[in-house]
Design a protein around this nucleic acid. Structure first.
Lengths: 146, 146
DNA sequence: CAGCATCCTTCCTGATACTG
DNA sequence: CAGTATCAGGAAGGATGCTG
């Protein structure tokens, strides 16, 4: 069970009033949600196909995230009453529009990675914080391995 | 200290290779990062101004997220060597482009909220899962209060 | 096949008190 | 003013075993 009035929960709710951003982010901020949507962008997939396609995800989490995606109307769950059972997942129109947005995000990310790489190679330039030198070291793990 | 080889960490790393999406999302998936960027979109702000502007954030977290944003090159930290000390935060060009993307995301979110509302009112229509009836109840907390 | 139940770990976030 | 240090709570994610 979940504490309804933890400061944590309160903060979360407050953020959603802020604007649409927090809401949208919450839809795709599960670690695997983007991957799931991505895999579904041009095919239906069965539960097990998803499980295999998304290497490393556990059953529990896969189900959880699928359910959330379904509740958020991004994914449709189609049950075929057969034996053995068959369930296919596909994107809703909204899900499709979300994937389109993900593509934007992806593009931006690639750009950012390039920028970061540039900075990395041009590391000779010392200034990052102006006037004073940046006091935080924290092993700059900007690269992909991050 | 952080376990380097937990499955968790491994999965996280693996995802980043997937494509730019996970990377980008990681940049803004801190609960407050979007808010911070949003607040900075057309002004510089001092530490305390940010703290006041973003109601509910704790000092620790504010600093942490600012540092990450800085490391990711979205925010610039400008120190004025005065007494009392003054530090201003502002967006980098990359940060600005990120905010532009956030606006996209926001728009999408608003659209999604509208869709959800429509579904809510038109709840008379029973089908959501095709063929079979959706078996999961899980109190549809789709609305803003979610 | 598709997925639920249970238990456990890891990590994130926040409260509070203190400092150059 | 702009933080740091320390501690605690909780939520997300994972491993495994079992079922209609």
């Amino acid at each position: 069970m979940r504490k309804e009035n933890s400061t944590n929960a309160l903060n979360e709710r407050k953020l959603h009033i802020d604007c649409g951003i927090a809401h949208t982010l919450s839809l795709i901020s599960g670690r695997w949600k983007a991957s799931i949507l991505w895999r579904l962008q041009d095919t239906k997939l069965r539960y097990n196909e998803l499980k295999k396609a998304i290497e490393g995800i556990s059953e529990r989490v896969l189900v959880l995230q699928l359910r959330e995606l379904e509740n958020d109307n991004l994914v449709k769950r189609v049950i075929y009453p057969e034996v053995p059972p068959r369930v296919e997942y596909e994107l809703t129109p909204l899900g499709l529009s979300m994937v389109a947005m993900l593509r934007h995000i992806s593009d931006w990310g690639i750009l950012h990675l390039k920028e970061a790489a540039k900075k990395e190679t041009a590391a000779a330039i010392p200034e990052k914080t102006t006037i004073a030198v940046k006091p935080i070291k924290k092993a700059a793990v900007l690269a992909i391995a991050r």
